[in-house]
Write a protein that binds this DNA or RNA. Structure first.
Lengths: 152, 152
DNA sequence: GAACCTATGTCAGAATGCTGACATGAGTCA
DNA sequence: TGACTCATGTCAGCATTCTGACATAGGTTC
């Protein structure tokens, strides 16, 4: 506890621990996705589209926590390789709703199973109560960090 | 289409929420560090050195959750700009212990204060009990993800 | 001592993600 | 209608991080 105005104590910092946990999760996911030839962002995009078909490029970007420029590059590659389809022209506005192709769906199946097993491993040793507690606390952190409390 | 219950449910996934929280923290840190002309990894390196003087390049890399190659690039820049010093030759082996210069220490002061304020904001609305609960749960997750349980 | 394994520092090239910028479509407001 | 604002898709350039590779130092193990 020798952090008297000195700095952030890494041993007790929840921020540091959060980063460490996130890093460990990323490494574990990369480990199981690599054999499938898939990156984490790659997988995130497919999973998002499976659960919310018709998401636009910008919406996918927000869901995967990258910029829309980054997602656009990925989406073009996925489209080129036949995992995803987008209409050539927007029905309304500029928004191009993306959808998984059968090939994309097949590809996602294995990846999704692999990722679920990683998440399950992450939660071993934690009770239901602890898990829901963690859920609530993480949501609170996100809320506070984004400053959503301001006007509300 | 038939993804009901098959995939990872993003709405209730602790893994997804963990990534979201980590992303929010990173964004918030970048926001306060940008005016100081410092990136998150940049700051992490300096903070590590302040708390554990004499860390080697590889040790710094592990502490900042990047590869040693990445940290090496950063360290060379920090050395060139006079924030950090390393001996020209290793006293023993190949390990080069790095240390902050007075300039590095000064630079870190403001950044550390800024990051502390971000972490404080993140924890607003959480009780002491919740915080220590989160600490324990995150440590458990890291432990499980890394498979430390094996031999222990 | 020799063979072996591991960890380290470092260089080089590739992949990934970001910022900046631009044009365009939709909604708002006078 | 016209001006303004905002969100979107996209191109281009830059920054950051990674993987691959190599030489070297130290600690085994025989």
């Amino acid at each position: 506890m020798s952090q008297e105005g000195v700095g952030v104590d890494l041993e007790t910092s929840l921020g540091y621990l959060l980063k460490e946990a996130s890093s460990a999760l990323r490494v574990a996911m990369e480990e199981v996705l690599r054999p499938l030839g898939m990156s984490v962002t790659h997988y995130s995009c497919l999973e998002l589209l499976a659960q919310r078909p018709g998401l636009s490029n910008s919406e996918l970007a927000r869901g995967a926590f990258v910029t829309r420029q980054t997602m656009n590059v990925l989406l073009q590659a996925l489209e080129r390789d036949g995992y995803v389809t987008r209409p050539a022209e927007a029905a309304v506005g500029k928004v191009l709703p993306a959808r998984l192709t059968p090939r994309g769906r097949r590809s996602l199946e294995k990846a999704s199973a692999a990722v679920r097993s990683v998440e399950a491993r992450m939660l071993t040793g934690l009770t239901e109560t602890e898990q829901s507690g963690a859920f609530r606390i993480l949501q609170s952190m996100i809320h506070s960090l984004r400053g959503d409390d301001e006007g509300a």
